[in-house]
């Protein structure tokens, strides 16, 4: 659907079985090709927002549409199709340390290759090619046959990015992708994400804790507080006052990556 945005939140709400409200009637359109950074305190609903896009959490009110397709009404095969179109990157990488780097990236092809071929390790040639291309984009081709557990944290995160890329996704969801990394590696990973967003035009949603990183890389910043949208503006325009509003307090050194470098 050419007319619809990449992602549309329509009064989207998520209430967990425990009664905790993760997302509260969120209304938001994200156009194709945008790089959007979501900021907010932990527990503000950033993770929930990303997981509502690929149905890893159950939407309990309203709906989310990805390329015009309803997430809430997708089940089984349709839901797996939808997830295959959205690559996810995690704070703790979530790669299988015992498998090789290449095998980890091939996991990005699970929805596209018959299960029996995967179980006997007979991946189609074009899928292996695609996995290598993805590894090339994050500069890890030479580590393809190394066990993933032997890589450094930054490299493991880039394997995670390559896995998401191998899905040939229309959307990338990055959940605190740099929270476990040192400042220098954090920048390297953010550069990778920006380059992929610009080169391939993949709509990218990134949860970030560090405000200066958010300002530097975001075309648009979304602020969440208690599951509600409290800020929506261009990355360059954000002021300290805006952050104070999102966080309910003034900025401290903990909120800025540069200050961490100085420490």
């Amino acid at each position: 659907m050419a007319g619809s945005p990449a992602i549309r939140f329509r009064q989207a709400s998520v209430v967990y079985p425990s009664g905790v409200r993760g997302l509260d009637r969120l209304d938001l359109d994200i156009p194709h090709g945008d790089l959007v950074v979501i900021v907010g305190l932990s527990g503000a609903g950033k993770s929930t927002m990303l997981r509502a896009v690929n149905g890893l959490v159950t939407i309990t009110g309203g709906d989310v549409e990805v390329e015009g397709r309803s997430v809430r009404s997708s089940r089984g095969k349709a839901l797996r199709e939808l997830r295959a179109g959205a690559g996810m990157i995690f704070q703790d990488y979530r790669i299988v340390r015992r498998l090789s780097v290449l095998q980890n990236v091939l996991v990005g092809r699970v929805a596209r290759v018959p299960t029996w071929r995967q179980l006997i390790g007979m991946w189609p040639k074009e899928d292996v090619e695609l996995a290598f291309d993805s590894l090339d984009r994050v500069g890890l081709v030479d580590r393809a046959y190394v066990k993933a557990g032997q890589l450094s944290g930054g490299q493991q995160q880039r394997v995670g990015i390559a896995r998401a890329l191998a899905q040939k996704p229309s959307v990338i969801l990055a959940d605190e992708p740099v929270a476990s990394l040192d400042p220098v590696t954090s920048r390297r990973v953010m550069e990778d994400l920006r380059r992929i967003n610009q080169d391939l035009g993949i709509t990218t949603l990134v949860n970030l804790h560090f405000l200066d990183l958010a300002k530097e890389y975001a075309e648009r910043i979304i602020g969440l507080s208690q599951g509600r949208l409290v800020f929506d503006g261009a990355g360059g325009d954000v002021t300290e006052g805006d952050f104070a509003e999102i966080y309910g307090r003034h900025m401290t050194a903990d909120d800025v990556l540069e200050a961490q470098v100085a420490l």
Binding site: A84, R94, V107, T115, G160, A164
Partner: peptide, 19 residues
């Protein structure tokens, strides 16, 4: 948590178990 990564890629139950 690792199973969530496979499900997020669109994996079915058997693929989640396997990977």
């Amino acid at each position: 948590k690792l199973t969530e990564a496979v499900r997020a890629s669109g994996g079915n139950w058997l693929e989640t178990v396997f990977f």
